[in-house]
């Protein structure tokens, strides 16, 4: 069962990664990336590394997303 979950999560990651590259709207890309980070954090929880998971959630998903959003607000939204 966990294996299935793992595969699902990892496929989700791949889909997110491809979608980020494909999508034209930068805001959407950033949000997809935030989702990617969160899923990555879950995956790390599965790998028994809660420290990394928390850090990724706070830094990767939180701070990075905020920074990306700030940058987009300063530049432009479309590609």
């Amino acid at each position: 069962m966990t294996e299935l979950l793992q595969y699902l999560l990892m496929l989700f990651l791949v889909v997110c990664a491809v979608a980020v590259a494909r999508i034209r709207d930068l805001l959407a890309a950033v949000i997809i990336f935030a989702a990617y980070s969160l899923v990555m954090a879950i995956l790390w929880l599965l790998l028994a590394s809660p420290d990394i998971a928390i850090t990724e959630a706070a830094l990767g998903a939180g701070v990075t997303t905020l920074l990306l959003l700030a940058a987009i607000s300063k530049t432009r939204r479309e590609e």
Partner: peptide, 13 residues
């Protein structure tokens, strides 16, 4: 360029 940065993050993660 922003996509490049996101790509970089994906690579790193």
């Amino acid at each position: 360029l922003i996509k490049k940065v996101i790509g970089m993050n994906i690579m790193d993660t």
